[in-house]
Design a protein around this nucleic acid. Structure first.
Lengths: 347, 347
DNA sequence: TTCATCGTTGAAAGCGCTTACATCCGAGAT
DNA sequence: ATCTCGGATGTAAGCGCTTTCAACGATGAA
């Protein structure tokens, strides 16, 4: 027997190592490891003894030690800009649950407030087998490029780069659809709210907006370049109210913005959709609670997250992977803020 | 020189170990480790050489190896039931950002959908220094008890147990305040919606509800024991509409419920607050968008999360800690669903 | 009875890092 | 010039686990 200090037994589960289990079962640590890994070649007898011992001691192998030995972590990293609103939460839920199914832990990091992001990400990378990150402007390209090459990386809702895996939801098509829908209501002075430069999502949505106009032989207005928060929406509404900006319809790059505009506009005496139609993106909870209900594009964000976890895992394990970016379809949900009669059905 | 296989240099940052750095700097790995730990006793000269080498190689120590050597992980575990709605997201944001400030990674786990939760948690525990978990019924007591004793555990919004650290937001007092407020509007048939058995939060809120009645020499109705989701709210509204239940005011255990009830009631022709007053809990985004605005209790959830991270870290490092459960104050935000005139101010 | 074979098992070598501990060397004291 | 002391550095022993490799019976064949 090796003259090795052994757990005192004072602490229940912490401090119990593979040595304790081996001792208790009367076998070598190699055997313990073997049965716990479900490995080959262990007699049924020792199998049982070890299992019993492990069970009594509530033994769970220390992740760090295992990682060191097997040279991977059984963990996925996820970096998101922040977590307000339903979008990222849903994404995270999808990601976590799929990762868990794959036996992977997830270590999460929020970019917001980190002063040295690439340092933080690089540090995160030392404890996971691969990274999924959101491809928005909140996470600079340099950050992802810095990681790529050393560990598998998948970009969520990011730009399709030939060298990096991407999962994204369909944007241009649904943008074209929702814009056409608005145009179909006879609106002719329609504005797009959101900054195409803020990320691929918004950029593609604006592209769809333009495409819809072209399809109708109309010319699309320049985007109103603002951020997507409530405060920006209020500001936009004020410009509309003051006549600084004119429009009979507004395609907003997300619901938060759309909702904020709508509220302020109504406070200012405008009526939606009669005076101005408004549509958004995401189908947040509030969208179906406001009056009129907000017409919007629903993204299966949860699936997006799950896809990201899947793709990442495939890259890590070296499984065969389809090549192009994976795109998840979206759907239009029609309510009445676009000009449709109330009780409109989603289609 | 040790006859040790050294990184090939083919992969940029992965594969660079402390050995590569040492070699490049022309020093021993001990020295490298020393300067990277900011340890004592390194000459300025080697310091610089090592720093330079590490920088060129983009070296970051492998977390697992370090963990194994120093016997801790520099990571906090967090287990939440799920992530829908703003409550958990906010909590998570607060937790993550404080943890990051403390130099801790956070590994997240969602209870929802895990078939063997205690196994999952026990596994999680092998890669973190301590665990924070939400003290709701979604996470059975057995789970937390299983961990407690082996690693530091802090319960969020859980029952104050003498043996376990708890951070929680104030419930009973604000419940009493909001209930009194409703009573103050002359309502006499007020119902509480939510199941006190579903967790300490709801239980304490109901306690406050009762206390408010007692203070007014009224007798409090039994709680309407339902879950806190939209669907439950709709069902409740239907019972109200059908006359199965009668009330002139409703204190809901969260906003999601309140909002759902309110919407359905109005669809059914009731007017809020004239026919029935409704108040909720959490101050979600929708609460200020609906008509009438929802009177509710705002919890500083983010702070709650940060507190949890703090407390956990104190326990892990063995820092001195105040003893009782830490409770975060809440505030009433008065809008008009309670019967106050529109443009009510929060107080 | 002897030998080859195969299934089981343990010894031991790492995985990459930290950290006593020993060693070395130059500076100040005598 | 010799001795002592202390700062800087290297050596090596782990941290807890996996996994190769060799050793060990026991078994069936010859």
């Amino acid at each position: 027997m090796k003259g090795r200090p052994v757990a005192t037994g004072s602490t229940p589960s912490s401090g119990t190592t593979i040595y304790s289990v081996a001792e208790r079962a009367g076998v070598s640590i190699a055997s313990v490891s073997r049965v716990l890994q479900g490995s080959t070649a262990v007699s049924e007898k020792t199998r049982l003894r070890v299992l019993a011992a492990a069970d009594e001691l509530k033994y769970v192998p220390l992740a760090a030690a295992r990682s060191l030995a097997v040279r991977h972590h059984e963990a996925h990293g996820l970096v998101l800009p922040e977590l307000s609103g339903p979008y990222y939460s849903e994404l995270l839920m999808g990601f976590e649950s799929r990762a868990a199914e794959l036996g992977q832990s997830v270590v999460l990091m929020l970019a917001e407030g980190k002063s040295d992001l690439v340092r933080a990400v690089r540090n995160l990378a030392t404890r996971v087998d691969g990274l999924a990150m959101l491809g928005s402007s909140a996470i600079p390209d340099a950050t992802v490029t810095a990681m790529h090459g050393s560990k598998p990386v998948v970009l969520i809702a990011g730009d399709a780069r030939p060298d990096i895996d991407t999962v994204t939801s369909e944007n241009t098509g649904s943008a074209e659809a929702i814009t056409s829908h608005v145009l179909g209501h006879g609106r002719r002075r329609v504005l797009f709210a959101g900054d195409p430069a803020s990320g691929p999502d918004v950029r593609d949505r604006y592209a769809g907006f333009v495409a819809a106009h072209e399809a109708a032989h109309l010319s699309a207005a320049e985007p109103v370049r603002i951020a997507l928060r409530e405060i920006d929406g209020r500001a936009l509404a004020d410009r509309l109210l003051s006549g600084d900006l004119r429009a009979d319809a507004l395609v907003c790059a997300n619901d938060e913005l759309a909702l904020a505009v709508m509220k302020r506009l109504r406070e200012g005496g405008q009526v939606v959709p009669d005076d101005i139609a408004i549509v958004g993106w995401d189908d947040v909870m509030t969208a179906r609670y406001v009056e009129p209900g907000l017409t919007t594009v629903r993204q299966p964000v949860r699936e997006l997250g799950a896809s990201a976890a899947d793709r990442l895992h495939q890259r890590i394990t070296g499984a065969p992977v389809g090549d192009g970016p994976q795109v998840i379809p979206t759907s239009l949900v029609i309510r009445s803020s676009c000009g449709c009669p109330p009780e409109g059905v989603s289609r």
